[in-house]
């Protein structure tokens, strides 16, 4: 495979080495080292909460802010850069929140000035938010260098946060009754309060 460090539209290509999987390795003999490729670009936005962000495309399975913190730290460490990740925004892997029915049926329950409700981020993308501008710059410097590595053995490892058997079984588990009661109660209380305020 030809080495590509960045795409024409400015995205850096950031590879990660994938862990071996027993059922796959027996079929993978002789094939190239399995890698995942993320595409990253500095994010420009006038919105306050989207400042200091890097835009991510193609996010691995079950990625969360912790897994991003780990790999970003590893990459920065390689080039002696210091950078702090604050959050992973708009990562909605399964598209559960593609539509917000609540805000489409009433504005009563929406959080004032919550831009996320109207924000549209394509699927399989997210924003990686850093604590400050220098964190973003440091990280970006490291990423530029990292994207130039051609030897796959030097790639940072990606570790999937794989679900377990019980993760799937848990979908069938009853909702805790007390939790449900509280949830319903508090939600309806807020709703009534807002309704009264609106009148």
């Amino acid at each position: 495979m030809v080495h590509v460090d960045s795409m024409k539209n400015g995205f850096l290509v950031i590879p990660f080495k994938l862990p071996e999987h027993p059922v796959l390795s027996k079929h993978e003999n002789g094939k190239s080292v399995p890698c995942h490729y993320m595409f990253m670009k500095k994010h420009q936005s006038k919105q306050e909460e989207e400042s200091n962000c890097i835009f991510l495309v193609n996010i691995p399975l079950l990625t969360n802010v912790e897994s991003m913190k780990t790999v970003i730290k590893e990459i920065c460490d390689k080039y002696d850069e210091v950078s702090y990740v604050e959050d992973l925004l708009y990562n909605d892997e399964f598209g559960l929140n593609d539509v917000n029915l609540s805000s489409l049926t009433s504005d009563l329950m929406s959080v004032p000035n919550d831009s996320s409700e109207t924000r549209f981020t394509p699927r399989n993308t997210a924003l990686l938010k850093f604590v400050d501008q220098s964190s973003v710059n440091n990280c970006w410097n490291a990423l530029v260098k990292y994207s130039n590595i051609k030897d796959s053995s030097k790639f940072v490892n990606w570790n999937y946060s794989a679900p377990s058997f019980s993760t799937f079984i848990n979908f069938y588990k009853p909702i805790d009754l007390e939790y449900l009661k509280d949830d319903v109660h508090s939600h309806l209380a807020i709703f009534e309060q807002r309704e009264q305020e609106a009148q």
């Binding site: 590509v4 890698c35 193609n58 399989n124 993308t125």
Partner: peptide, 28 residues
């Protein structure tokens, strides 16, 4: 908005990264 697990072929073109996909699915 490509919404697929892809890898670069050159600076403009990408293709489905089957290997990575399979690892994801196997891990999942």
């Amino acid at each position: 908005n490509i919404d697929g697990n892809v890898k670069p072929v050159d600076k403009e073109i990408v293709e489905l990264n089957k290997q990575a996909l399979f690892h994801e699915i196997a891990a999942f």
